[in-house]
């Protein structure tokens, strides 16, 4: 019993130490730090605005959703249709006279939600399949990896399009499509890591000590696999946002009055030479968000593969 308690404390200390180490290393590098700031602002804003949107739906009070925004994102006003950037409308207005900045800010929480959901599900499925494949080996390994290869063979975007269109191109369809397509790369990662550590002494020792199966799976295999996966996952949030915005650009996964970054750009492309702000600013917004994840992920990758000091 006492042994167990100390074990748990050690675990906690261990993960905290790791986190502190990563934060310190990210903090040391200017670009990595900038990436982290962008990511924090993105998630912070998404959380606040997302909560407000949920509450405004719950209390059926449309004002609550736009309380923090400069203008009401759903306010049609044809007097100010297609106005360029100005001090009142910082990023201009679209054909219906809706403020583009407000619409951008209103659309962001969905991207954060989808990114978290898809990456988390991919890590979960990837961990289960990858660790199983790596640990069991032989026929199980062969079957899982062939299926993984089949999913990796088609470009992710094309397969997501196929799945979500077959599911009638709805919002749920887009999310399911992304979730179905996103796991294979994590399966490969987890399998590779498991193969690396499964013959190490501490894994063998845990078997002798009769550690329970769930604990063995989670504590010994999953947690020890995660290092390179954290860095990749940070990058991958950006990939999910890019792919989702591309889907929205093609008109998949829209729930009309609610704006999407990709579909705003798609609407704006038609008005391109004159109302350039309509297509370019949503695109730039995606670029900034994704660059945050890319910088952070890149820095984390450097830290984990010990390439910091070169």
């Amino acid at each position: 019993m006492i042994e167990n308690v100390t074990h748990k404390q050690e675990e906690k200390k261990d993960t905290q130490g790791k986190l502190n180490f990563y934060l310190k290393m990210v903090y040391k590098d200017k670009t990595g730090f900038a990436g982290m700031i962008i990511v924090l602002i993105f998630f912070g804003w998404s959380f606040i605005q997302g909560m407000l949107e949920i509450f405004s739906g719950m209390f059926s009070d449309p004002h609550l959703g736009s309380i923090l925004l400069p203008h009401n994102p759903f306010n049609f006003n044809y007097h100010i249709s297609m106005q360029g950037p100005s001090s009142t409308y910082l990023l201009g207005t679209n054909a219906e006279g809706e403020d583009i900045l407000s619409r951008l800010l209103y659309a962001v929480p969905r991207d954060a939600f989808i990114a978290v959901l898809v990456v988390a599900s991919a890590i979960l499925i990837g961990a289960v399949l990858g660790i199983t494949a790596g640990y069991m080996g032989k026929m199980t390994d062969e079957i899982i990896m062939r299926v993984t290869d089949a999913f990796l063979a088609v470009p992710a975007l094309i397969l997501v399009i196929a799945i979500s269109v077959v599911l009638n191109a709805t919002y749920t369809g887009a999310i399911i499509g992304l979730m179905v397509v996103w796991w294979p790369i994590y399966t490969r990662f987890f399998r590779g890591q498991t193969l690396k550590i499964k013959n190490l002494d501490f894994v063998q020792a845990s078997k002798i000590n009769n550690v329970s199966k769930i604990r063995f799976f989670f504590r010994y295999l999953f947690l020890n696999d995660t290092d390179p996966i954290i860095a990749y996952a940070a990058l991958d949030f950006g990939n999910v946002i890019l792919t989702y915005s591309t889907l929205a650009f093609l008109g998949i996964g829209l729930t009309p009055p609610i704006p999407e970054l990709g579909s705003m750009a798609a609407d704006g492309v038609g008005a391109l030479p004159t109302a350039w702000w309509w297509a370019i600013f949503p695109g730039l917004a995606i670029l900034v968000i994704v660059i945050g994840f890319v910088l952070l992920g890149d820095r984390l990758q450097d830290i984990i593969s010990n390439r910091i000091n070169y």
Partner: peptide, 29 residues
């Protein structure tokens, strides 16, 4: 290259279309 990685394809295409195709008029958009 990190910036080109992070940019959505429609942004790249729209920028090229806008600057080279429409503003400068060098190539058909």
């Amino acid at each position: 290259y990190l910036a080109t990685w992070a940019s959505p394809p429609f942004l790249v295409a729209a920028m090229l279309q806008l600057f080279i195709g429409y503003d400068l008029g060098l190539l058909p958009a």
